[in-house]
């Protein structure tokens, strides 16, 4: 990426305050309400440093959790939770049974690393399930939980097809990535994207990111990575079952399940009408059967 011309205006180390529209300098995008923003996570350049996890915890003042060792590769975070809003997955692919091999082809690695996060779904199932309206779409087209409105009912938890949102037993409220809503309002790039040293996490306007991601897939195909594909862009895997598209989408090189992502996530709201219809049909069927049996016993008595 070339240096933004405005960067030359701020050569000093000590700044008097926040640089106006700082994201223009760090991510090449000006953040304006009414536009659609998201993350493009290119897993092929993730080095598993976990700077994103740390930056997220630092900015959002989230406590360290899951203390101890999981025994799962270098991943001691485990999963996304109420206190962990970025999770770097380590997948060891070579060798039998997923165990790391001691021999690799030159310049190749048996590791797949992916920084997982809330997908900020276009048709967000968590938001649709929330009875209080605590989950809402922001002016930046992201999905956020309003803490003062959340009553901790937990309906959003099973509604999320990606297992992202979680209710904390400590404060009894639902928590998840806010795509740094407070930073966006201040013109700052989200903390994880800003911290990522390899630009595996890219923040920007969604249409720009989607075009950039298509180009990256083409480049990888040319370079001999035929398995590279996008997950969560319109019409791609991950954007299935009426979810529309995912504002946080990924470039993957193995099946989604390898990264613990669903192959074909769906919107639970699609199942409301069929379940209601089958419930009503079952009640009607039972009523007919009861009427028939009671009628038969009445006929026998008379």
């Amino acid at each position: 990426m070339t240096m933004h011309p405005r960067a030359a205006d701020f050569p000093q180390s000590d700044l008097p305050g926040v640089i106006p529209h700082e994201s223009e300098l760090t991510a090449g995008v000006r953040i304006e309400p009414g536009r659609s923003y998201g993350f493009f996570t290119d897993t092929t350049v993730c080095i598993g440093c976990k700077a994103c996890e740390v930056a997220c915890k630092e900015w959002n003042n989230l406590p360290a959790d899951n203390l101890g060792l999981t025994g799962h590769s270098y991943d001691n975070t485990g999963a996304l939770s109420a206190n962990t809003w970025r999770h770097v997955a380590f997948v060891e692919t070579s060798g039998c049974g997923g165990v790391r091999d001691t021999v690799e082809a030159p310049f190749q690695s048996g590791w797949l690393m992916m920084s997982d996060v809330c997908k900020h779904c276009h048709n967000a199932p968590c938001l649709e399930a929330c009875p209080t309206g605590a989950l809402f779409k922001t002016e930046f087209d992201t999905v956020v939980v309003q803490q003062d409105i959340c009553n901790g009912c937990g309906y959003c938890v099973p509604a999320c097809p990606f297992g992202v949102v979680d209710v904390s037993p400590v404060d009894g409220k639902a928590h998840k990535c806010t795509l740094c809503y407070d930073r966006l309002k201040g013109g700052l790039e989200p903390a994880c994207a800003k911290a990522c040293p390899t630009d595996s996490i890219q923040f920007g306007e969604l249409s720009v990111l989607q075009a950039r991601a298509e180009e990256r897939v083409a480049v990888l195909h040319e370079r001999g990575v035929p398995g590279a594909y996008l997950y969560g862009t319109p019409g791609a895997p991950g954007a299935t079952g009426d979810l529309g598209h995912l504002n946080a989408f990924f470039l993957l090189t193995a099946r989604p399940e390898v990264y613990n992502l669903p192959a074909a996530p769906t919107r639970p709201a699609n199942r409301v009408a069929p379940s209601l219809a089958s419930g009503l049909a079952a009640v009607a069927g039972l009523a007919v059967a009861a009427a028939f049996l009671l009628g038969a016993s009445d006929r026998r008595r008379s």
Binding site: N61, P63, K173
Partner: peptide, 8 residues
């Protein structure tokens, strides 16, 4: 520092 229900 204050973020949601967390503070330092």
């Amino acid at each position: 520092i204050v973020q949601e229900s967390r503070f330092q």
